[in-house]
Simulated assay, not measured.
Amino acid sequence: MSIIVWGIIACEVGFWVVMLLGLAARYLLRLQRLSTALLLSVPVIDVLLLTLIAWDLLANRAVADFAHGLGAVYLGFTVAFGHQLISTVDAHFAHRFGGGPAPTKRPKTGPAHVRYEWQQWLRALLAGAIASLVLGAIILLVGDPARTAELANWYPRIGLVLVIWLITGPLWDLVADVFRSREPSEQLSS
Rank of each mutant, 00 (worst) to 15 (best):
M1R: 04
V5M: 10
V5F: 06
V5I: 14
W6L: 13
G7A: 08
I8W: 03
I8F: 00
A10G: 09
C11V: 07
G14Q: 06
W16F: 14
V18A: 11
M19I: 10
L20W: 02
L23Y: 02
L23E: 10
A24T: 13
A25V: 00
A25M: 09
R30Y: 09
R30S: 13
L31E: 10
R33A: 15
L34M: 11
T36P: 00
A37I: 05
L39D: 07
L39M: 12
L40K: 10
S41D: 11
S41R: 05
S41C: 10
V42D: 04
P43Q: 13
V44C: 14
D46V: 10
V47S: 04
L48E: 03
L48H: 01
L50N: 00
L52M: 13
I53A: 03
W55E: 00
W55L: 02
D56Y: 01
D56M: 00
L57M: 12
L57K: 00
L58S: 04
R61N: 03
V63R: 05
V63F: 01
A64F: 00
A64P: 05
D65G: 15
F66T: 07
F66L: 12
A67D: 09
H68W: 00
H68Y: 03
H68Q: 09
G69K: 03
L70W: 01
Y74K: 02
Y74C: 03
Y74F: 15
T78G: 05
A80M: 02
G82L: 11
H83Y: 11
Q84P: 02
L85T: 15
I86S: 09
I86R: 15
I86G: 11
S87W: 03
S87H: 08
T88G: 14
V89D: 09
V89F: 03
D90Q: 05
A91Y: 05
F93K: 11
F93A: 14
A94N: 14
R96K: 13
F97V: 13
F97C: 11
G98A: 08
G98V: 06
G99F: 08
P101E: 13
K105S: 14
P107H: 14
T109M: 11
T109E: 14
A112V: 06
V114R: 04
V114T: 15
Y116S: 12
L125E: 06
L126I: 06
L126P: 04
G128A: 07
I130M: 07
I130H: 05
S132K: 06
S132L: 02
L133R: 08
L135F: 02
I139T: 08
I139H: 04
L140M: 05
L141A: 15
P145T: 02
A146Y: 00
R147D: 01
A149M: 05
A149G: 10
N153P: 01
I158M: 09
I158L: 10
G159D: 06
L160D: 08
V161W: 09
I164M: 14
I164E: 12
L166D: 06
I167W: 10
G169V: 08
W172P: 05
L174W: 07
V178I: 12
F179M: 13
R180S: 09
R182D: 11
R182F: 12
R182Q: 13
P184M: 03
P184H: 03
S190Y: 07
